[in-house]
Nucleic acid binder design. Structure first.
Lengths: 205, 205
DNA sequence: CTCTAAAGCTACCGATCGGTAGGAAATTCA
DNA sequence: TGAATTTCCTACCGATCGGTAGCTTTAGAG
């Protein structure tokens, strides 16, 4: 056992609350005092547990990737039909708001605009861009596999489709954060998928 | 003539500089001191000329609407072929970065994420959302006209198309701000327009 | 029970935030 | 040349920012 006084709060649980705050308010919109109040811990305890604000944000972003990102990627891989897989991703973005206490949209998309300002630490900007790239690459991998399965519309380029749907997800993320209605967003998803008729999957000849 | 000491700076010219700063750094990323230094004017002069920070941002946003928004809407209306009109809008977003000293993307899209934080003045959040809505409505008007002209793909719903392309523009705005390459963005535009083959316009039977 | 190590807190640091008081400078009107 | 008016700037306000010094409290090791 480790010596010393044990920590009075759960690190992961606390990180989930902090994540939600950064998500809603942005990197410099959420002050350390506000965060400390929200999790019911004094400010120095935050610094003891997570370092400075930059490393705290990076930890929250990593937690988001582990919790939400991995889940989405797993769902993307698990669905056998590529069209249904990407449709599930788009619908998840549409339905994102009230699933739990999380804000609407996607934390990475929100942070992409929030963290482009020059005074944001370089490491934070880099982490956000890296996660945006990794999302597009996850899509590309899924579409490459679909191409091998003969599961793509004829003549479709997997990487181009990944860039396209990645951009569309960013757009939906902005709309969700701006308070767009679910109906409007569903309409967008329908329009975007309308060009990709079902039935290409090899199990649906 | 008005009595009193004449203003030493041009209001519109100054507003253009301030607009660019808000665009890059966001509402609270750009401090009044930073703005004053950038335009070469003392801080109290800013308050004399524009009121407080909130009204200064609203003035900058209105200037953006007059300068860039109106130009895009005019181009959208001027192009007779609806497909070419929306293609021009998408390409303008792709090419937005180095046209002048302006940052990449679109100020409204950037502000949509930046101004969703709870500590941003209500009027600012409302103005941003209103401009986002007005953009979609401008697209809808253009597509309604195209529907009358028989200039839309068969069975297309003008309002759904407006929501779709509006969302796509938001996505491109995020990508541009996140530093996506022009080639990747062009690929996205190609994918998005690929489903809308040319030749529907009545002058191209 | 004592010592050590880790975590808790109050109270504070300098810097910067948005915003303003109050006087000097510049211009028109009489 | 005054008086009136408007803009300019230096210097300052309280509040809040990220971050920390230093003491107290809680635990295990001996």
């Amino acid at each position: 056992m480790v010596r010393g006084r044990p920590r009075s709060f759960d690190r992961i649980e606390t990180l989930d609350q902090i994540l939600a705050l950064f998500w809603r308010e942005g990197f410099d919109g959420a002050s350390m005092q506000q965060i400390a109040d929200a999790v019911g811990v004094s400010k120095p305890s935050l610094y003891d547990a997570f370092g400075n604000k930059e490393s705290l944000f990076l930890a929250a972003l990593a937690r988001y990737a582990d919790r939400d990102g991995q889940r989405q990627i797993a769902a993307l891989e698990a669905e056998a039909d590529a069209r249904l897989a990407v449709l599930g991703l788009l619908n998840a973005m549409v339905d994102s708001s009230p699933i739990c206490g999380s804000p609407a949209g996607c934390m990475v998309v929100a942070s992409a605009s929030l963290c482009a300002a020059s005074h944001i630490p370089e490491a934070v900007q880099g982490a956000v861009r890296s996660m945006l790239d990794r999302s597009t690459e996850a899509l590309a991998r899924r579409f490459e596999r679909a191409a091998c399965d003969g599961d793509l519309p004829p003549g479709a380029d997997p990487r181009a489709m990944a860039a396209y749907f990645g951009t569309l997800l960013c757009g939906l993320g902005v709309q969700a954060r701006a308070g767009a209605s679910r109906d409007a967003m569903r309409q967008v998803v329908t329009s975007a998928m309308g060009t990709w008729p079902p039935g290409h999957h090899r199990t649906q000849p």
